[in-house]
Write a protein that binds this DNA or RNA. Structure first.
Length: 970
RNA sequence: GCCCCCGUAGCCCAAUCGGCAGAGGCGGACGACUUAAAAUCGUCGUAGUGUCGGUUCGAGUCCGACCGGGGGCACCA
């Protein structure tokens, strides 16, 4: 029998002679059911709001808002890895509740999404039915874990009352624009009505200067629409025929496949809803500095937003009126720009193709490598563009050989008037910057490679160090070859930074360009052609103009449909068209409404919002789940999320106090949610500038999986280890490390563990197996260790044979008091820092000490066991409540008290110092804790072993580290 | 290719400001209880911190190079 198998029987497999009152899985289960029922009756986890239906006295206390990342209620059930973060946040929340804080901790469901819809397509079951069943099942599982959630605050994004407010927020965003001038140029969202008023009053000029009144209604609407933070755009989007929907940039993998389903994604021009998240790019980057988040996540967001400082430079074209504008981060290297490159899809390339006759022949003496073998530029460019279009993202990624073709055009380098050839090449991307670059081979490796391929000149303009052996040099150094008599500009001798400053101001003076900032971040594609999502609160009038519905017409409920699936296509069919399922519900989509200008016919928007919509604001609904007047009451919002400069510093942006979840949401959810929060803040609906003040990424519980010689997974719990090899049914199997999952046959459910040991044991084990933020392998056989600790703790309080309480009223001796108070101090510190594994170790240590001293007829002192029960309560709340109550306490310990360490017992009378001789421990001395350095030094030098080692000589040096050690250097 | 994190006992993990390498758990060995086993309880090992070099009175901790594992980014001008 393998260890895993034996231990998974847990303590229910105990024999008949098990003492009747031992803490076994059976007793644990009884206690857990009992206390969960009592907590529910008492409303123990109800958090009080300042106002509204959940108003309560406790709202006078200091608050703590703890949140777990919104789970998707999957139908497949939880394994032991899922609740790791949930338990961690629960322990933290319970600890603070015991300290007297008003703690808001609950959990709702991000319940829209593809799985329920796909199930509906297969079986005809309504997604709502599937979703609600899954939520019930999920709740059954997490309730058993004894998480202290406020059940009154549970929400699901699919609740009509919830998505009504998601639609309401969408309308706020739709009816807003970004005033880049506001707040000293930082920018702020403002209601669109204010923009219209500015145009109407003439305070703001219209795009072409025509007075507002003279513009037609349609033109006015067009201008206004172009400012909205949620807007319709006919722009290249990621069309995924295999899914039948468009997806966001963030949902496309680097290989150009959809994150969900792995289908090819194509860039297509389609009319779609977009969110102007780019307006917030600077604030989204800058405010990261105000957050207590892991650096890793901040870095990922910074990279994703991709802000880079540089300059835009205009190059005139020889013999033509057009100019080419480029973005560069290295304007200091302009003198080294020896050619230019356009993306193959650049508009100027379009012009060449549209009117080839104007672009003539190759200039005399054109290098044959530049022509691609074609007889004129237009032909070469057309062929090159065709070639570039056939390359998939994957090809581009794998094959970084530089290709390109000369366009026949030449541009004038503004700093020295020299003519440089213009190429089309696919190493330049249309989507970034201006879609064109100035190429500086000496200071850019990509340009170096292209220049080498095409025989273009390479001019160093930054002097590399003498020992530099590479090709392009991107480091700092004095500028060289950077002067022109023709323009009078010289950068020679300047550092990179100074040269940038000088050349930018020179360009600004001479009208060649200006400083500029570019971002990788693109606007957020906000529509999906699916069924199971929030409908848009938008209708189109007969001219096809979008109109936001008035608030009193919310919610726009999802209609019943015969077909839940959008039309999907062959995954390679790039030219197919999206057909959302809602478009088939014509009774719903075609409506007669009065939007203020009489009853008219409108057509509803038939897209739905992406799954991220609900999770952008759910923390606000947790605060005020039953409010039907507003999405959240401002007073409740201020209490739970408002900035607390007194606690968190003057720069505190506000937000909930602890957000626990996986690092996989580093960019998507966390960026979108920050964006919505900022819009709501700008519009005055919330007081916090950020949704999540502190973020903590829990690690993952992973597991070993085993495959046989055919590569088929075998049940992991039946695999036995022998001499470092693994066997299943006598055959050697191969071990893999990774995820836990049903298909890998290595899944362990929380129920199995709870049945075998009780839920408190499972909670304790998960918290003790390592730091919360570290990933580690699950080991069922180790769980018993946590269970044994709880048994010993129980046994110190309860007599296993009689069930009587064994504690005495005897005073503990001073040594035990010291141990107790050190444990109290240490455990508090560990709980504060979310270091639950070391807190558990300290508690086990103390308990082992008590066990050793009081395992006989005399029980341990109450004065030790009561605090110990309280200390362990956040980790194992059911067991702790039971012992607390059996110790004669009538009130539940959920609201405390929590032990306070007595300083008196934290210091020892004497300290033992190790004595090092030349860095190696050779002896020990014990001195009074109050001894001065001189005394310690003298005692150390008087030590017989030290005297011996010194051999009568004088020490060269003696280092005394108070409280630590003494090092004698001989 | 670039950036970030991590390598401590057979395994999971501790170790404060650079100060005695070990808190805790699993496994193992031995013992107690038992007719016996399981369960329970008790006692006890095991590494010199991935490798090499440096700084220091002193390095798991700081610095450099390399090796191994994990993650992020990847023609972003």
């Amino acid at each position: 029998m393998s260890g895993a198998e034996r231990n998974s029987q847990g303590t229910d497999g105990a024999g008949d002679d098990t003492p009747p009152f031992r803490y076994t899985a059976g007793i644990a289960g009884d206690i857990e059911r009992d206390w969960q029922r009592r907590w529910e009756e008492l409303g123990s986890y109800h958090a009080a709001n300042p106002v509204g239906p959940l108003r309560g006295q406790d709202a006078a206390s200091e608050k703590l808002f703890v949140q777990d990342m919104f789970p998707y209620p999957s139908g497949s059930g939880l394994h032991v890895g899922h609740p790791l973060g949930f338990i961690g946040s629960d322990v933290y929340a319970r600890y603070h509740r015991m300290l007297g804080r008003n703690v808001l901790h609950t959990m709702g469901f991000d319940a829209f999404g593809l799985p329920a819809e796909q199930y509906a397509v297969q079986t005809g079951t309504h997604p709502r039915t599937t979703t609600e069943n899954n939520i019930e099942r999920y709740l059954t599982q997490i309730r058993r874990l004894g998480l202290g959630h406020d059940e009154r605050r549970r929400v699901a994004t699919t609740d009509i009352e919830f998505y009504k407010w998601t639609q309401w927020i969408f309308l706020r965003i739709f009816h807003a624009w970004y005033d880049t001038e506001a707040d000293q140029g930082r920018g702020r969202a403002r209601p669109i009505s204010e923009l219209e008023a500015e145009f109407a009053s003439g305070e703001r000029a219209t795009p072409d200067g025509t007075p507002w009144d003279e513009l037609g209604r349609d033109r006015q609407r067009e201008i206004i629409d172009s400012y909205r933070l949620a807007y319709l755009s006919e722009a290249p989007v990621n069309w995924c025929p295999g899914l039948g929907t468009v997806v966001a940039n963030e949902e496309v993998t680097a290989d150009g496949l959809s994150e969900r389903g792995n289908f090819p994604v194509f860039r297509r021009n389609l009319k779609q809803w977009m969110m102007r998240i780019t307006a917030y790019a600077d604030r989204l980057v800058d405010d990261l500095d105000r957050l207590e988040w892991p650096d890793k996540v901040k870095t990922m967001q910074r990279n994703w937003i991709g802000r880079s400082q540089g300059a835009e430079v205009r190059f005139a074209l020889e013999g033509r009126d057009e100019t080419i504008e480029v973005f560069t981060t290295r304007p200091d290297t302009l003198f080294g720009a020896t050619y230019m490159v356009l993306a193959p899809e650049h508009p100027l390339v379009d012009e060449i193709l549209a009117a080839p006759e104007k672009f003539g022949e190759w200039p005399a003496g054109t290098d044959p490598r530049w022509t691609g073998g074609y007889s004129n530029p237009a032909e070469a460019v057309a062929e090159y563009r065709r070639f570039a279009a056939t390359k998939s993202e994957l090809d581009r990624q794998e094959n970084k050989d530089k290709t390109g073709v000369f366009t026949g055009l030449r541009a004038v380098n503004p700093v020295n008037g020299e003519l440089v050839p213009v190429f089309a090449a696919d190493y330049v991307l249309l989507a970034y910057g201006t879609g064109a670059i100035m190429a500086v081979p000496a200071q850019d490796q990509r340009d170096w490679e292209f220049a080498s391929e095409f025989g273009l000149p390479i001019v160093r303009t930054v002097d590399p160090p003498a020992d530099f052996e590479g090709e392009a040099y991107t480091g700092d150094g004095p500028a060289i070859n950077s002067a022109s008599e023709a323009t009078g500009l010289s950068l020679n001798g300047l550092s990179v930074e100074d040269a940038k400053t000088k050349v930018v101001s020179w360009m600004e003076q001479h009208g060649h360009g200006s400083g500029s900032v570019q971002y990788k971040l693109r606007d957020w594609l906000f529509a999906r052609q699916r069924y199971w999502g929030e409908p848009f609160p938008i209708v189109y009038d007969e001219d096809g103009n979008p109109r936001g519905l008035p608030e009193d017409q919310l919610p726009v409920e999802l209609p019943e449909v015969a077909e839940y699936s959008p039309r999907t296509y062959d995954s390679e069919d790039a030219d197919s068209q999206p057909e959302p399922p809602l478009s088939k519900a014509s009774d719903w989509a075609e409506v007669e409404l009065d939007l203020g200008d009489g009853l008219k016919h409108y057509h509803r928007d038939t897209n739905v919002m992406p799954q991220w919509a609900g999770s952008c604001w759910y923390q606000l609904r947790y605060i005020d789940p039953d409010n039907d007047e507003r999405f959240v009451d401002p007073e409740n919002e201020r209490y739970w999320m408002g900035p607390r400069p007194d606690r968190h510093g003057a720069n505190d942006p506000g937000g909930l106090d602890l957000y626990v979840g996986g690092v996989e949401h580093a960019v998507l959810h966390l960026l979108y949610a920050r964006f919505w929060q900022k819009v709501l803040y700008d519009l005055g609906h919330v007081s916090a500038e950020e949704p999540y003040r502190r973020l903590y990424n829990q690690g993952y519980i992973q597991a070993y999986a085993f495959t046989d010689s055919r590569g088929v997974y075998v049940p992991a719990e039946e695999v036995v280890e022998q001499d470092g090899k693994y066997f299943y049914g006598g055959e050697e199997v191969n071990r893999e490390y990774g995820k836990m999952g049903k298909s890998l046959k290595n899944s362990v459910s929380p129920e199995e563990m709870a049945d075998a040991y009780g839920v408190d044991t499972l909670r304790l084990y998960e918290m003790s197996m390592g730091p919360l933020d570290a990933s580690r392998p699950w080991a069922t056989k180790d769980v018993v260790g946590s269970h044994r600790f709880l048994q010993r703790l129980w046994r110190n309080v309860i007599d296993e044979r009689t069930g009587e309480v064994r504690v005495t009223d005897e005073e503990p001796d001073v040594e035990l008091l010291r141990a107790l108070h050190k444990t109290i101090a240490g455990v508090r510190e560990d709980y504060d820092a979310l270091q639950f594994n070391t807190a558990v170790a300290k508690l086990i240590e103390l308990n082992n000490r008590v066990t050793k001293a009081y395992s006989g007829a005399v029980g341990p002192p109450r004065a030790v066991m009561e605090p110990m029960v309280l200390l362990v309560a956040p980790l194992t709340p059911h067991l702790a409540e039971e012992l607390w109550s059996r110790l004669g306490n009538e009130r539940s310990l959920v609201q405390g008290p929590f032990p306070v360490a007595d300083e008196e017992y934290l210091v020892d009378d004497t300290v033992e110092y190790p004595i090092q001789f030349n860095g190696k421990v050779r002896s020990r001395i014990t001195v009074s804790a109050s001894a001065e350095q001189e005394e310690i030094r003298a005692a150390a030098l008087a030590d017989s072993r030290v005297v011996e080692l010194l051999g009568g000589g004088e020490p060269r040096k003696v280092i005394v580290v108070p409280g630590r050690l003494v090092n004698v250097v001989g």
